[in-house]
């Protein structure tokens, strides 16, 4: 009992400094998260258009790309981006964070593109035809009519995928990018403390909670119409 209280009091004692250190690591996690999100959201749309192209070779090129990216682990993709160029062309290795970001952006664009495609294909043909007979161009039909309806429909799956991205940032430690898990793990070897690793979960949990609320809010905002 006394031992237990002793442990607790040590944890409380260390809590402020551990929190600050983990927060530093989580800052890196959030950085990976935000940059990946900002770049892969639009890139995903480009891949969607590619994989929905009427030109067969383009369509199959993009489909194969999506197959490879979705068919292999993200961890492996990070390793390939980081070590691949050096092994293949004797090139200088990319900065670690850059390698992670490239792998993440490519990976998440592929996943987003499939969500977009599902959304776009769920819009009834009549919406396109209505736009067309009213003299709208294809671009206008897409941006003025279809896109908004697609966004409404894909909010739930996108929320899912974006929350997964938060936690996937932990994979960056495979090439020693100092995100929160890596920082927390260091306490094991340096100070023989394992609780900071468990504690790191709270950071993810809090952040994902905020995202969940945000997506709930967006969903509610878009619910002003049915259809």
């Amino acid at each position: 009992m006394i031992e237990f209280l002793h442990t607790i009091s040590r944890i409380i004692e260390d809590l402020p400094s551990v929190t600050m250190t983990l927060l530093g690591g989580f800052g890196k996690s959030i950085e990976i998260f935000l940059i990946t999100l900002v770049l892969s959201l639009p890139l995903g749309l480009v891949i969607t258009f590619g994989s929905m192209s009427k030109i067969k070779p383009i369509k199959w090129l993009f489909k194969t790309f999506v197959w490879i990216i979705r068919g292999t682990p993200l961890m492996l993709q990070i390793i390939v981006v980081f070590y691949g160029p050096g092994l293949l062309w004797d090139a200088n290795a990319l900065p670690r964070l850059t390698a992670v970001l490239i792998a993440f952006v490519i990976n998440y664009s592929a996943y987003f593109s499939e969500i977009y495609r599902a959304g776009i294909e769920s819009i009834p043909q009549g919406q396109y035809e209505a736009g067309q007979v009213l003299g709208m161009t294809k671009t206008q039909v897409f941006f003025k009519i279809v896109l908004f309806q697609v966004i409404k429909r894909i909010v739930p799956p996108m929320g899912n995928e974006i929350i997964t991205l938060v936690k996937d940032t932990s994979l960056a430690r495979i090439i020693a990018v100092e995100e929160i898990i890596m920082v927390a793990q260091r306490y094991i070897s340096a100070k023989a403390l394992i609780w900071p690793l468990f504690y790191s979960g709270a950071f993810y949990l809090l952040f994902c909670g905020i995202l969940t609320l945000l997506f709930g809010y967006i969903e509610k905002k878009l619910n002003y119409y049915r259809g």
Partner: peptide
């Protein structure tokens, strides 16, 4: 030159 009215209306829901 034509106005077209569909069976399913096809109004823009948003």
């Amino acid at each position: 030159k034509f106005g077209f009215v569909f069976q399913q209306f096809n109004l823009f829901p948003q």
